[in-house]
C-alpha cells in the first residue's frame, strides 16, 4: 500500500464552500476558490487563523462536507465517493472516542469498520497500539485516558488500516509539550515510511519543524504556499555564531565589515523554550516503540 510516488495525494481545484446561516438563508463563504496540490510522501501543513477554512477544507477532503463548487480528489478519486477514503486515516481535533470501550476494543472497532481482514486484525491492532506507545494502557477504558493518550489512541485508529494519507486536525491542541513532541516524532516517523501527512496546527514552531510544505489560508483564501525552508529563510542574510568576543575585537570586526559594505548586528543566541523544556522534564515511556510498525 505504501509506494511513494510524486503523484498527488490530494488535488483541490477552485474549491468554494458556502454555509447557509440562520432562517433567512444568509450565505457564509468558508472556502473561497482554493486550489491546492499535495504530492505523495510529504508532510504538508495547512495553516491559518481560526475561521480561515482549514477544518472545512479537511472535511471536504474526507467527504464529510460537499463543496458548493469546485472539485477535490484523493488519490485521483472524487472525495465524495466512499472509495476515496480507503487510503485515508483521520484524527479530528480534540477527539472524544467511545469512553466505554478499552483502547484495544476501540482500535479493533475501527479496524473492523475499515475492513482489516479478521486473520490479520488482532496482530494489526496490537501493532499500532504499541507503535503509538499505549501498550500498557490498552486494556483501560478510553474514558480514563489523558488528553495526550487520547490523541495517541486517535492516531492508532487513524493508522489501523495502514493508509497512505493521514490527516491530522490540530493533533497537539490541548496536549502538553511532552505529548506534543511525541506526536511530532510519530509524524516524522510516518514521513520516513513514505506516508503523506496533512496537518493543521496553531503551533507554528512545530509545523516549521516537521513540515516540508505549508499553505496559509485566510478568510477561505490561499494567501501563501511553498516549501518551509524557502518561505522562512532570508536569502540575502546570514548568521555567524561565534564565542563571546571582547568589545575591542567586536569593534574591529564591525569596522572590517563596514569597509566592505556589510552591516553587522549582534544578538545573544537563545535556545528554543520547548527544547529547553523537553531537555529538563522527564518523558514518560517510549513514544515510539516498534520502528516501522505503522
Amino acid at each position: 500500500m505504501t509506494t511513494p510516488t510524486t503523484a498527488a495525494a490530494i488535488e483541490i481545484r477552485g474549491l468554494i464552500k458556502d454555509f447557509t446561516v440562520g432562517l433567512r438563508g444568509v450565505k457564509l463563504r468558508a472556502v473561497d476558490g482554493l486550489s491546492l496540490r499535495i504530492p505523495e510522501g510529504q508532510v504538508f501543513g495547512l495553516l491559518g487563523p481560526n475561521g480561515s477554512g482549514k477544518s472545512t477544507t479537511i472535511k471536504i477532503i474526507l467527504g464529510l462536507l460537499e463543496p458548493t463548487l469546485g472539485e477535490c480528489r484523493v488519490f485521483g478519486v472524487p472525495s465524495h465517493q466512499v472509495d476515496s477514503r480507503l487510503n485515508v486515516g483521520y484524527l479530528p481535533e480534540a477527539p472524544y472516542f467511545y469512553r466505554y470501550l478499552s483502547g484495544t476494543e476501540l482500535v479493533r472497532f475501527y479496524a473492523r469498520i475499515c475492513g482489516v481482514p479478521s486473520e490479520r486484525r488482532e496482530a494489526r491492532v496490537r501493532e499500532v497500539i504499541e507503535w503509538v506507545g499505549l501498550a500498557a494502557a490498552a486494556s483501560r477504558r478510553v474514558g480514563t485516558y489523558s488528553k495526550g493518550m487520547l490523541q495517541r489512541i486517535g492516531l492508532a485508529q487513524a493508522l489501523v488500516h495502514d493508509p497512505r494519507l493521514i490527516i491530522l486536525d490540530e493533533p497537539t491542541a490541548g496536549v502538553d509539550p511532552v505529548g506534543s513532541a511525541e506526536i511530532s516524532e510519530l509524524i516524522l516517523r510516518l514521513k520516513a515510511q513514505g506516508k503523506t501527512v496533512l496537518i493543521t496546527s496553531h503551533l507554528l514552531a512545530q509545523i516549521e519543524d516537521i513540515c516540508d510544505h505549508v499553505a496559509i489560508l485566510d478568510h477561505g483564501r490561499l494567501i501563501l504556499e511553498g516549501r518551509v525552508a524557502e518561505l522562512v529563510g532570508q536569502k540575502n542574510r546570514q548568521a555567524l555564531i561565534v564565542d563571546t568576543l571582547p568589545p575591542a575585537e567586536l569593534e574591529a570586526l564591525r569596522a572590517w565589515l563596514a569597509e566592505r559594505g556589510h552591516a553587522l548586528s549582534v544578538e545573544q543566541p537563545r535556545a528554543r523554550l520547548d527544547q529547553l523544556f523537553l531537555s529538563k522534564v522527564s518523558r514518560p515511556g517510549n513514544a515510539g516503540g516498534k520502528e516501522g510498525g505503522a
Binding site: R85, F97, Y98, I167
Partner: peptide, 14 residues
Amino acid sequence: ENRTALTILAKPIW
C-alpha cells in the same frame, strides 16, 4: 456531539 461520527464517516463506510 462527541465527534465520533467524524472518525467513523471518515472511514470507507457508506
